[in-house]
Amino acid sequence: MTDRVRVALTVNGERVDAEVEPRQNLVDFLREELQLTGSHIGCEHGVCGACTVRVDGTIVRGCLMLAVQCDGDRVETIEGLSDSGDVADLQAAFCERNALQCGFCTPGMLLTAQELLLQSGAAPSREQIREHLSGNYCRCTGYQAIVDAVEAVALARQGQTP
């Protein structure tokens, strides 16, 4: 009954066919089977946000979804979004503002911030940015630099200067 299950999904635009153990969560599948190690594991309980990936266009906790559930889904990780340039301006702002230290939370932060910026009509306030990032743990920065970087990109995308 606990046999492997065949799945077919798209990861960063590439079709992936695999046989997965039902118990393997999505982020372990990405890291161990596909060697996409840019998505990280910080808690395995959905609290820290380091495993954030996109499934069918919305961000999810990679540790709270099973790989077997992703049959037919479109999965995107930081590697794919970097190659496509999807988050290039956020990445540049994070670098310029030193909005990361150890970098372990950064892929999850970038994906989460990008979702906020794609949803928002107007540039979100600093408070809205902080609330949207409430599920992403960073132990290094104290968050201010991250909020600065996201705010700068939000304004830049609206054609405003910070």
Partner: peptide
């Protein structure tokens, strides 16, 4: 800027 930032922001670090 730190030379290692691009790698860290692109998921290309090696922990």
């Amino acid at each position: 800027p730190r030379p290692n930032l691009a790698r860290l922001t692109q998921g290309r670090a090696q922990y």
